[in-house]
């Protein structure tokens, strides 16, 4: 077995566009679930709307990349409002089912052949990051062509540009959430998580606060989808419910009611994923694991499922959460 290559690929999982996308989406879930207590099982839908909003507005409407990304963000705001205004009255588990259904509706609408001209249906969309007219995201890349970094962290100028841009967005998102949660606004949000009737009895417009939290977390999710899309093509097969559950796993790994937990959780998730996706097939090829390589790569998702169960049962506050501040109060 080539331990050097396994180690190399594992370390590479620390910093990829996908890791940043997961961190952003997990940060959105932290806003929703960790702080406001909203059970959103449709974060994949927010990501899809961010990514498709960006890709479609560039390809179909010829907008420059930054305007396309803004459209993606605005799309998620609209989605949050459409979803939130009627459903935020609902009890927690009802909200969970409503959001997962809404995310599936969004995915099926991107998948259907009825709108192939715009969405590319099952094939998805491509060619929106570099545009012949120079308005694409990669066209604005200030980094000269070349190879940068060292060892596992070696990137070409295109990936590096996505990473730099993604890290800037992530930093702003982390600051935003931190600034909000230390403020009186954050106090109201946490109060709502604990008992919304009590907060209502103190004269706070609970519904408005919940809607604001849903929109902010949804925008973070959309930004995650946009960063993910800025690095590759977009296809509806990515935004399945499994994606939502993987992001939940990242969130719970780090700690739902923390600021840095979701970011670190996403990093840990992807480092483990990178490690297992290299280790397990290698074990299978070298005959240590008596299964085919395809089966070996399936095993890592089995381990994700088991990991999620153990985490929720034995350490629901996550790695970085305060043990007293469990978020499963309802």
């Amino acid at each position: 077995m080539d331990w050097g290559s396994i180690l190399n690929n594992t370390l590479a999982g620390f910093l990829t566009p996908t890791t940043i996308a997961f961190a952003l989406a997990a940060l959105g879930l932290a806003m929703h679930f960790g702080f406001a207590g909203l059970l959103n099982f449709g974060i994949a839908g927010f990501m899809a709307i961010g990514g498709y909003g960006y890709a479609i507005s560039v390809l179909t409407f010829g907008l420059p990349w930054w305007a396309g990304m803004l459209v993606g963000v605005l799309g998620s705001v609209v989605f949050a409002l459409i979803l939130g205004i009627p459903t935020l009255r609902l009890r927690g588990d009802y909200l969970a089912i409503a959001t997962i259904a809404a995310a599936e509706i969004a995915r099926l609408l991107f998948l259907t052949t009825a709108f192939t001209d715009v969405t590319g249906s099952a094939d998805g969309l491509f060619g929106f990051n570099s545009r012949p007219d120079g308005s694409g995201f990669q066209n604005s890349n200030p980094i000269p062509q070349g190879t940068y970094g060292f060892g596992p962290f070696t990137y070409n100028e295109q990936t590096l540009w996505v990473l730099v841009f993604g890290l800037i967005v992530l930093t702003v998102a982390v600051w935003f959430l931190w600034a909000l949660m230390r403020s009186p606004w954050g106090r109201v949000i946490k109060g709502i998580r604990e008992d919304e009737e009590a907060v209502r009895s103190l004269g706070k417009n609970v519904f408005a606060y919940k809607l604001q939290a849903l929109v902010i977390g949804g925008v973070f999710g959309a930004l995650g989808g946009i960063i993910y899309t800025a690095a590759q093509n977009i296809s509806p097969g990515v935004y399945v419910t499994s994606l939502t559950f993987f992001i939940w796993t990242s969130l719970l790994l780090g700690g739902a009611a923390t600021i840095f937990g979701p970011v670190i959780g996403a990093v840990i998730f992807w480092v483990i994923q990178a490690f297992l996706s290299n280790l397990l097939p290698a074990l299978s090829t070298s005959g240590i694991l008596p299964v085919s390589t395809t089966q070996a790569s399936t095993l890592r998702f089995v381990l994700v499922g088991i990991g999620l169960m153990l985490l929720v049962i034995y350490r629901p506050q996550g790695i970085f959460g305060d043990k007293r501040e469990l978020t499963f109060v309802k």
């Binding site: 059970l39 927690g92 588990d93 969970a96 499994s242 559950f245 939940w248 796993t249 719970l252 998702f301 089995v302 994700v304 499922g305 088991i306 990991g307 999620l308 169960m309 153990l310 985490l311 929720v312 049962i313 629901p316 499963f328 309802k330």
Partner: peptide, 14 residues
């Protein structure tokens, strides 16, 4: 209940 629900999601993936 929420914890159980997420456990069932983990079980579903597994």
């Amino acid at each position: 209940i929420v914890q159980l629900m997420i456990v069932s999601i983990g079980l579903s993936l597994t």
